[in-house]
Design a protein around this nucleic acid. Structure first.
Length: 416
DNA sequence: TCTGGGGTCCTCAGACGA
DNA sequence: TCTGTCGTCTGAGGACCC
């Protein structure tokens, strides 16, 4: 097993050609760049309200046990001095876009996985993959002031694990520097994986972990040796095959640059539970308008409309309907969403509502529906709304009947 | 204490047509 | 004409990821 440190002084090793690049505490790092006085402090980006969670935590905060997805209240109890920031996702997207451009200067084969991480296939590059890893770290730091970790391996899953191992470790005295670039050498993949916990496998969450524990599997090595037929009985056919392959270091998935989105959605958690169709309908209008606006900006329209409802006891249901033709209009989307809402008893109290659209297609290919035949059509109206928002900002015009109940505002992803 | 938001993929059940 | 089977589509829900 070979680790490379950031000074690049390790012995040369034969490595794979997949790189996984992962930004360190990305949202917090971006915030610390524009507010340098926050450097070295326990900082979290997320919803500070009673129903908020942490989206990103600085290494100083992590030393107290704070981590992403943790309820904000719990984070405050663990670390009373923590500085909570609401988050500015427009800015994070901008920075992310520039970082992705840096990555594309090394290879066109860049597959963004989220705003703060990406896979690269550098099989066609002239430089060795490890050297590219170091150059990427230097360039992202020099150009954007953000630290990142790089994993180098023969497969995606291994490269991702590598970048995780290259990251800094939080300690009470501040983050202890990681190796920066971690290499899983060719031919040593199985030996590398074998002693590691099954939770290191992509796709093993709390439920699958409990299933595996029950049959006595704790390490990846034990999973790799376990008969596939028996594994199928425990976690299902497709999932077991996937896990078994990964445990045996079999991961032929290629790096695919820029895959098209398959669905788009928006959801909202309320400060207090809502109990009436009227209030929830108004929320659906606002969410539908937002989703439709994003659909049009992306030049797509979708056929299947889904609403998601989470009740006060956290139980969650979805209701969906597939239309004859695809939609990208906020008005039409809201109408369908409200129809679906009618089928649900909301009296017990709803803490979250969401609207999503799937079965997306290029909107230039979409068939005209009954709504398009009116003069002016909803499509004409939507295009006019987009033009007004483009000139005067997203708040310049809002759909009639949209919610302004003061019930919302816990979202950690909501830019302020 | 109490659990966000935006996604993807999989499974299962029921309906329906060949 | 009736029945059974198979494949496909749709809807609902679960698990997982960042």
């Amino acid at each position: 097993m070979t680790k490379e440190n950031s000074s690049g002084d390790s012995r040369p090793t034969q490595s794979g050609t997949i790189l996984h690049v992962d930004m360190d505490a990305f949202f917090v790092s971006v915030e610390q760049l524009r507010r340098p006085e926050l450097r070295g402090l326990p900082v979290a980006v997320g919803g500070p309200g009673s129903r908020g969670v942490v989206a990103s935590a600085s290494y100083e905060a992590r030393a107290y046990g704070v981590h992403s997805a943790m309820p904000s209240g719990q984070a405050r109890r663990l670390c009373p001095d923590i500085v909570f920031l609401p988050g500015d996702h427009e800015l994070y997207s901008e920075v992310s876009g520039r970082i992705m451009d840096i990555l594309r200067s090394f290879t066109p084969l860049v597959e963004p996985l989220s705003v703060d991480e990406a896979f690269l296939d550098v099989s066609g590059a002239h430089r060795p993959p490890v050297e590219i890893g170091h150059l990427i770290r230097k360039e992202v730091l020099d150009e954007e002031g953000i630290n990142c970790a790089v994993g180098v391996a023969s497969a995606k899953f291994l490269a991702k694990l590598g970048s995780k191992l290259a990251k800094p470790t939080p300690t009470p005295a501040g983050p202890s520097a990681g190796v920066g670039v971690f290499v899983v050498p060719l031919g040593e993949e199985r030996a590398f994986l074998s002693p590691r916990p099954v939770t290191d496998i992509w796709g093993v969450g709390p439920v699958t972990l409990a299933h595996l524990k029950r049959i006595g599997i704790a390490t990846i090595g034990e999973l790799a040796e376990f008969p596939l037929e028996r594994l199928e009985e425990v976690v299902g056919k497709a999932h077991s095959k996937h896990l078994h392959n990964l445990a045996n270091a079999v991961d032929p998935r290629p790096v695919i640059p820029e895959t098209a989105a398959k669905s788009m959605s928006r959801e909202e958690t309320f400060v207090r539970d809502l109990h009436t169709h009227v209030e929830l309908g108004a929320e659906l209008v606002a969410l539908s308008d937002s989703v439709a606006s994003r659909l049009r900006a992306a030049g797509v329209a979708g056929r299947t409309v889904t609403i998601k409802i989470r009740f006060g006891d956290f139980s969650t249901i979805t209701r969906s309907h597939t239309l004859a033709s695809s939609v990208d209009s906020g008005v039409v989307l809201a109408r369908e969403a409200k129809q679906l809402l009618k089928t649900v008893d909301v009296a017990p109290g709803v803490r979250l509502i969401g609207v999503g659209v799937s079965e997306l297609e290029d909107s230039s290919q979409r068939q005209l529906s009954f709504d398009d035949t009116a003069v002016p059509s909803w499509h004409d109206v939507d295009m006019a709304i987009d033009r007004i928002r483009g000139r005067f900002g997203s708040g310049a015009i809002r759909p009639g009947g949209a919610a302004d109940t003061g019930s919302r505002g816990t979202s950690s992803n909501r830019p302020n």
